Simulated assay, not measured.
Amino acid sequence: MAHVIIEWSANLEEVLDRPGLMRLIAEDMRERSDGTFPVGGIRVRAYRADDYVIADGNGPDDAFVNIEVRMGVGRSEAFRKQYFDALFTRVRDFLADLFDQRPFALSLYVAEVEGWKHNSIHKRLKG
């Protein structure tokens, strides 16, 4: 299980390649994690934040992308550090133009969570 929630400030509507960012993260989890994230459990979604205040509230071009990853427990600290350092670098590089165009903040948070799931997508992927 790896669920990724991307939150972005509405003032990025015309300049943020959301589909590209979501694909980058999903592909990275499928391909670079050595199967640590089962493909059928990967979810990546993005939501626009229409109401927000950034910093002092006086920078109309101030913008943000916040990425939250929720995953089941059990991955080692060494894996998490190595994997998410690399993922953050890939995302930062993907969004590099935004840092040059405007005041921009990028954050990535990772949380291990306990949850209950029922999923028949794994069955489709095997079949």
Rank of each mutant, 00 (worst) to 15 (best):
H3A: 07
I6R: 12
E7Q: 15
L16A: 11
R18E: 07
G20H: 14
G20K: 08
L21K: 06
L21H: 10
M22N: 12
E27M: 08
M29S: 01
R30P: 00
R30N: 07
R32D: 15
R32Q: 15
S33N: 08
S33G: 04
F37R: 09
F37A: 12
P38S: 10
G40V: 05
R43D: 05
R43H: 11
R43T: 08
Y47T: 14
G57R: 01
D62T: 00
N66T: 03
N66M: 06
N66W: 03
V69E: 02
R70T: 00
R70V: 00
M71W: 03
G72C: 03
G72A: 10
G74S: 09
R75W: 07
R75V: 00
K81H: 10
Y83R: 06
F84V: 05
D85M: 08
D85C: 08
R92P: 01
F99H: 13
R102G: 05
P103C: 11
L108C: 04
L108M: 13
A111L: 13
E112F: 04
E114A: 09
E114H: 10
E114G: 11
E114M: 04
G115N: 13
K117G: 05
N119S: 04
N119W: 04
R124H: 14
L125C: 12
G127W: 02
